[in-house]
């Protein structure tokens, strides 16, 4: 079970402070929704979790170990677009993670190991409902199917953390609800921790076990450079769906809806 600890993280670009004093800790198997107005640094924060960018100050720990400053296979990611590889079929996209892990030089598997990788990938495709599309290229899939494929591709590495950067922003509402259900099922089955950046508040509350809002406290023009965004709201969400495993009673108490305004 993964626990993410964020210790007094700051991010500045030159003289521009983007994020300041971000500290929180997550319970195992959390689904954290990160919300906030555009440009508040929520995507920057996700990129720091990803290792694509390093905090200017402070640190981020996963299970007590400081994060490497580059992306690694314990953290899966799904972006709004460009998450899957256009030159590989759906099945090849999912198999890629297994092949890269087992074949350092060629990046391709053969024979028995290839068959094993293919079977595992087919099972993964089935869990996101894409078993009929395994030989299609991403350009032949709809937006919702591409995002489901991206999720399958990320999960085949069994990451501790799944990071979603506005993953459903480009989908229409019906498709979006469908992908939500798939994501929740997979989250319950795998027990990973999910961080999702979204600008859709209802989505944030529907999926998340906790909603964290970033915003700037100081908005006067002369303050814009020196002050960044920080956590303004941090709300646990009462789950309508029962939690995956019976959690300790103390945690169940904590799950009660309460509004903790961190000001």
């Amino acid at each position: 079970m993964t626990r993410v600890t964020v210790e007094n993280v700051w991010k500045t670009y030159g003289r521009q402070t983007v994020l300041e004093r971000i500290s929180f800790e997550t319970a195992p198997q959390s689904f954290i929704s990160l919300v906030g107005p555009s440009g508040c640094g929520k995507s920057t924060f996700l990129r720091m979790l990803l290792g694509d960018e390093a905090p200017t100050q402070g640190r981020i720990l996963v299970d007590g170990v400081a994060l490497q400053a580059e992306p690694s296979p314990d953290r899966g990611v799904v972006f709004q677009k460009y998450s899957v590889f256009p030159h590989l079929t759906a099945l090849q996209n999912v198999m890629l993670g297994i092949e890269l892990g087992q074949s350092p030089f060629l990046g391709h598997l053969f024979g028995k190991r290839r068959r094993a990788a293919r079977d595992a990938s087919r099972a993964m495709l089935k869990s996101v409902g894409l078993e009929a599309a395994e030989n299609k290229y991403p350009a032949e899939l709809s937006g919702g199917m591409q995002q489901r494929l991206a999720i399958a591709q990320a999960l085949v590495k069994r990451p501790k953390l799944l990071l979603l950067d506005e993953p459903f922003g480009a989908l229409d509402p019906g498709i979006r609800a469908e992908v939500h259900e798939i994501l929740l099922t997979l989250w319950r089955e795998t027990g990973m921790t999910i961080f999702m950046v979204t600008h859709d508040l209802s989505e944030a509350f529907k999926l998340g076990t906790r909603v964290i809002a970033f915003d700037r406290r100081k908005n006067r023009p002369e303050e814009l450079e020196a002050y960044g965004a920080t956590i303004t709201f941090d709300l646990p969400v009462m789950r309508k769906i029962p939690p995956p495993e019976p959690v300790a009673s103390t945690e169940a108490v904590e799950q009660k809806p309460k509004i903790a305004i961190v000001r």
Binding site: F79, L100, G107, K157
Partner: peptide
């Protein structure tokens, strides 16, 4: 980025 989260090395990113 995605390739790196799938565990790809520089060589593997280049080749695949």
């Amino acid at each position: 980025i995605k390739a790196q989260t799938l565990g790809a090395s520089t060589w593997q990113i280049a080749m695949r």
